[in-house]
Design a protein around this nucleic acid. Structure first.
Lengths: 221, 221, 221, 221
DNA sequence: GATGAATGAGCGTTCATTCAT
DNA sequence: CATGAATGAACGCTCATTCAT
């Protein structure tokens, strides 16, 4: 696929407080415009207007529209990852059953913070280049700690490949939550949490009635 | 979010053979351009050029760029749904263990047919209006037959709400497959099938070690 | 001003009845489309569709869009001129007072025949080339007979230059009628006729209170 | 008749001097292009080129081609109305005979200022929406002061309905002047003024030989 | 002839980006 | 540095006209 080269990293490290403030204002304005206009109709001029700065200033800090949107995606992703990692950290010593519920609850809550922005990030912004961070961050930032946690709970698990299992579950849970949000399907919060917790626990720890016992499990037990 | 109204339904039913051929050529060209240029860089003039017709001809059959892309998404979605439904139909009389594997295998295969087009559809095309059909079709076209199948196998299940379970599984499997494809993660086909089958079977039929047995299951056993 | 050369005369003399019928149908359809869509939005394809023929056939008879519109203008102008000339002919032996009223009544009626088409012809169709016939025909077709009539009534007149006076009156009456129609101003038919007749008669035959008597009139009287 | 909605009001009030200059340049260029190419062949890109600015700049100030043309029509109409109103104001205390001549002279002069632009405005630009201002302004801007003037001279008049008479005369004079200009008919300026003045005075103040005297006139005299 | 699918030059318009002030 | 007027490549789309069938 053809790709053009555009700068996507912020043009300057804002050392002064005022600059930092301006950058924040611009990112915030971008988020608002993305939500109100949608990705395709969002324009840099509109963002500048909403931010209360001139386009020129905007381009002082962000070298391209893409970098602007990337900043929003980054911020949103950072926020979600933060919530997730905190939950995982808090679950560190908990048994799987409770740990899973804690993490899933965090993910459910994470989707409720800025649901509209999340929708735009997930549905309208092309997941190309830096713009795809939202899902990639799940793999690069959330999964490792989860893998570590699961490894610490390996004795409870039936799955062989913890990394693969994490990959499967993280994306399954994320996608189900997103689809519920996106289709405005009415699923009570606790039902959702119960169901996703069940999905995780059974996949990780249960064996289907006629499922052949795993080699290593057999050996261990 | 602001949305403008654009015609997205085909402009005329092509009655003559020549027209029908032209329409097919155009849709095919659109798919090719989407893959080679990406959604944002795809232009109607380029599509016409690749199709070997004039822009005018293109607009005889498709009233807008959006309708053009919608046709591609539709065709792709139709194709996948067809594969899925056939698999589900074929699984109708099979026990869950085998049925699940059959359906999942079909989904894996479905993602291998036009993987690059699938990526564009799933990652670059904004899921707005008719363009969101790909995922919606899972709910509207694939899920009902799956629900029916699972209901016929209700005696094997531990889940209470079959519709919700189907929703969870369909999107989980779809997303995992898509992420594997999209991140070029190397997972052998049979491992993938095994893992996803395990996910489904355990979620549907197993009980986690310390999971409180469900009311109705208890009664039955 | 730049002008392009386009054929504007009908491509063929329709000798056969069927052809003539087709031509009529097309001209009629053009008129209808002009009224319903306006000049700028009227397209040859739409005209063909309304006429129930193919664009190809349309171009067999009319070499360009301009020729199509010209045919409508011509037909409309012909019709009006016909009405006017008949009135003038009928007034030939009447004294000015009655003759003027007869002709003006005809002009009023002429504007009521196809008022919507008249509006389009007068307001939307650029009066360039053959498309300007509507007003030109007043000068070339209606005025000469009027001049002749007025010359036969010269003894009643105070105006020196009958041709100029005719020019003045014809366009004055035409324009007033058109503006009344166009602005949807409510002026009862007989008030309009009375007023325009007064305009004509006074201009042609009266002398303003302190107007210096004309040389030739002085001599004559 | 079908009409689409297009923005026709200027997009932004030019606050800075540079902007104002640009706007003027663009309007001037539009007028030049309208004259040189005609309305239908005039394009926004050509206007921008002639104005020496980019299309983008043009669209900063004018949201559509129609608004561009409307600005030219407005400017032209404003100019003419200004000339007319000044003449009417100057005639305020004059007796009808002289007042009529003053106003008519102004109208004749008004048609000589930018005759080619006037032709385009009157003959090629469709009188639809804001584009029809030229003639409408006669009614809304010129007529009221004329009516007032005539009312102040009511004792000299034979016409009953001063508003109707003004409507008749304003459009008559305007149209005759325009037709003379448009057909390149050679009529010496003073002949034209004499003739139109005669038209007005006789219509307003004279009684045709066998015309029944008006009720109120009879009473008065 | 008649058809209507095909043509393609060219339109109005947008918007990311630049740069004179 | 900030401003915002200016830029112009490039887009989606129209429609008078042609020509293979």
């Amino acid at each position: 696929m053809a790709t053009r080269k555009v700068r996507t990293s912020p043009r300057k490290r804002p050392t002064q407080d005022r600059s930092k403030q301006t950058v924040d204002t611009i990112v915030e304005a971008t988020a608002r415009v993305l939500v109100s206009e949608g990705y395709e109709r969002a324009t840099t001029n509109r963002v500048a207007e909403v931010a209360g700065v001139s386009v020129g200033s905007l381009y002082q800090y962000f070298p391209s529209k893409e970098s602007l949107v990337a900043a929003v995606v980054d911020r949103h992703s950072d926020h979600m990852m933060c919530v997730f990692r905190e939950a995982i950290a808090g679950a560190a010593t908990l048994p799987l059953r409770e740990g899973a519920r804690v993490v899933i609850t965090a993910m459910v809550d994470g989707h409720d913070v800025e649901p509209e922005l999340h929708r735009v990030c997930a549905e309208q912004i092309p997941r190309v280049g830096r713009l795809g961070r939202l899902l990639e961050d799940l793999d690069t930032h959330a999964s490792p700690s989860l893998v570590a946690y699961l490894q610490s709970r390996a004795h409870e698990l039936v799955v062989k490949d913890i990394e693969l299992a994490t990959f499967v579950l993280v994306h399954s849970v994320e996608t189900v939550l997103h689809r519920v949000l996106s289709t405005r399907r009415v699923v009570p919060r606790d039902v959702l949490i119960d169901e996703l917790t069940a999905l995780c626990l059974r996949y990780l720890t249960a064996t289907a009635p006629d499922e052949p016992a795993r080699a290593q499990r057999t050996v261990r037990s």
